[in-house]
Amino acid sequence: MTDSTPGTASASPELQLEVRQAGCRVLLRGRPEHGSGQPGDGIHELTSWALQLGDRASMEGERQHLEAFVSAVLPYTRLQMSGSPQGCGSVEGPLTIEPRGIGHRLLLRTSMPDSRPVDLQLDDAELADLARCLDAIVHDPLVRLGIEPPAMAGLRKRDLLNRESLRRQLLHPVAGACGVALVLGLSWLVPTAEVLVPEPVPNEGSERVEPGAEEEGTEEEGATAGGTPDPQDTDVPPSPVPPSPDPSTEPSPEPSPESPAIRSGPPPLPLISPWPPLPPIP
């Protein structure tokens, strides 16, 4: 499909180079170095060039126009690979190219007075043809015009993010905030852990010496430990042996004269258990 024919310059010192694609044709005319006229030298000085876009448009220009094409169309093609909606080319320059619809708008401005700019609509295939033609000119060893291909780099992460709509950008943060709020709301519904408060330990010795003071002390202990006094402690006098001694269900140690260390030691820490008490072992 590509037809790159280096110039035929047997009679005149002018060389021609033609690059042809299905929808695009570029013809370069120039002179070799020092007017030697050797075709192998390549084109060192461009006299004119012509571009034909299918049957729709044909234009001629000079070196600055070719440079403008190379510096606008090739970066634009690269941006199109990433799906970027940016255009290329300056408004004051000879051409701009930008996306329009499903194709591309190529706006050519002539330097002639009282002439309107040429507005062309290209599809992807024509853009690819044009880029291939310009690529062939820039990379052809026979074209020694010193036109360098434009530098290309990957798009920044910021540019990629800016292409996304605001709704899409806010989707993840809003979803995360809603998730946190949902978890916090559900955590309020979870029942808190049951605090098992040990029963107050009756002190026999102090009861014999000062019965009134012991009762006040037990009430104070129950109030401070559990918050509400046990009705058994207030109505029924404390008995040294509980009616149903079950070590598995009884959280507090059984007061007995055989365990003086328990009685005289510090009060046991409250046991916090979210589980109900285990059934008695048969």
């Binding site: 880029a131 820039v138 920044r156």
Partner: peptide
């Protein structure tokens, strides 16, 4: 758009997005 003599440079730049 990757075809042609300048295709590899364009494709490399595209793969380096982000």
């Amino acid at each position: 758009f990757s075809a042609g003599p300048g295709g590899p440079r364009r494709l490399i730049a595209h793969l380096q997005d982000g």
